[in-house]
Computed example of a mutant assay.
Amino acid sequence: MLIGEFQHNIDTKGRLIMPAKFRNDLGHHFIVTRGLDGCLFGFPMESWDGIQEKLKQLPLAKKDARAFSRFFYSAATEVEVDKQGRINLPQNLIEFAKIDKECRVIGVADRIEIWSSEKWDQFAEQAEENFEDIAETMIDFGL
């Protein structure tokens, strides 16, 4: 399971060190794509295969389903962890997530999220302020 928060820097060539704690679960190759809330999602290949199966089930006749699939797949890229534990993020994903240098790599069960440190700090502050309200709504999902 992917859990925890780690701060790392991305270099000028788009290389980002993957936290050692995540490397085994992510594998040597994994998929990175646009995520929600302005971050990037990283999926181990096994999780990616499951997501692809679910996306294939979306109705082609629904405009929102087509738009989501296009946006999600068009930015998806397979990354490889090098001998130093780094991945190379494409420029379009770096720009999407507005990552300048400092970023956070967050474990979220079956995926990672890569955030600009500034955006993560804003999100975390807001989530902390509203955590009890958010927790109450989770009851509706059986938590």
Score class of each variant (00 low, 15 high):
71 F>A: 13
78 E>D: 13
97 A>V: 03
90 P>G: 01
119 K>G: 00
89 L>G: 09
78 E>L: 06
141 F>S: 07
19 P>H: 02
24 N>K: 09
64 D>K: 14
58 L>Y: 11
53 E>F: 05
45 M>Y: 08
110 D>W: 06
130 N>P: 01
137 T>H: 12
56 K>G: 04
128 E>W: 11
110 D>P: 06
109 A>Q: 15
127 A>Y: 08
48 W>L: 05
5 E>S: 05
137 T>N: 15
19 P>W: 00
10 I>V: 14
124 A>F: 11
127 A>N: 13
82 D>F: 02
28 H>V: 05
105 V>H: 00
130 N>L: 13
112 I>L: 08
131 F>K: 12
45 M>S: 11
5 E>V: 01
122 Q>R: 12
54 K>S: 10
97 A>P: 00
30 F>I: 06
88 N>L: 15
84 Q>N: 14
69 S>Y: 09
21 K>P: 00
20 A>H: 00
125 E>W: 02
99 I>R: 08
90 P>F: 10
69 S>T: 14
7 Q>F: 03
122 Q>Y: 08
7 Q>C: 01
35 G>I: 09
81 V>E: 02
93 L>G: 11
141 F>K: 12
14 G>C: 04
87 I>G: 01
106 I>P: 01
114 I>A: 01
42 G>E: 02
30 F>Y: 06
18 M>I: 08
10 I>W: 06
54 K>L: 07
84 Q>M: 10
137 T>L: 13
105 V>I: 15
136 E>H: 10
131 F>Y: 14
80 E>K: 11
26 L>Y: 04
110 D>T: 14
98 K>F: 03
38 G>Q: 07
61 A>R: 10
126 Q>Y: 09
133 D>T: 12
41 F>L: 13
12 T>D: 15
39 C>I: 06
65 A>T: 10
57 Q>Y: 04
37 D>T: 10
104 R>Q: 04
53 E>A: 15
7 Q>R: 15
127 A>G: 06
96 F>M: 02
59 P>F: 12
123 F>I: 07
125 E>N: 15
91 Q>Y: 09
50 G>T: 02
107 G>S: 00
72 F>Q: 03
71 F>V: 10
107 G>R: 00
83 K>C: 02
143 L>K: 13
118 E>S: 13
80 E>L: 03
120 W>N: 02
140 D>R: 11
1 M>P: 04
104 R>G: 00
36 L>W: 06
102 E>G: 14
138 M>K: 08
132 E>Y: 07
14 G>M: 05
142 G>V: 10
38 G>L: 04
3 I>L: 12
34 R>P: 01
39 C>H: 06
47 S>V: 06
64 D>G: 13
138 M>P: 00
46 E>N: 11
65 A>F: 11
128 E>Y: 13
134 I>Y: 15
66 R>A: 04
89 L>W: 09
87 I>W: 01
89 L>M: 10
28 H>R: 10
3 I>Q: 10
103 C>L: 12
93 L>K: 08
77 T>K: 07
85 G>H: 01
8 H>M: 05
117 S>W: 04
97 A>G: 05
31 I>V: 15
135 A>W: 14
43 F>R: 08
19 P>R: 00
48 W>E: 05
143 L>Q: 11
142 G>D: 08
56 K>I: 10
104 R>T: 02
117 S>L: 04
24 N>V: 03
37 D>K: 15
76 A>E: 03
1 M>Y: 07
24 N>R: 05
31 I>H: 02
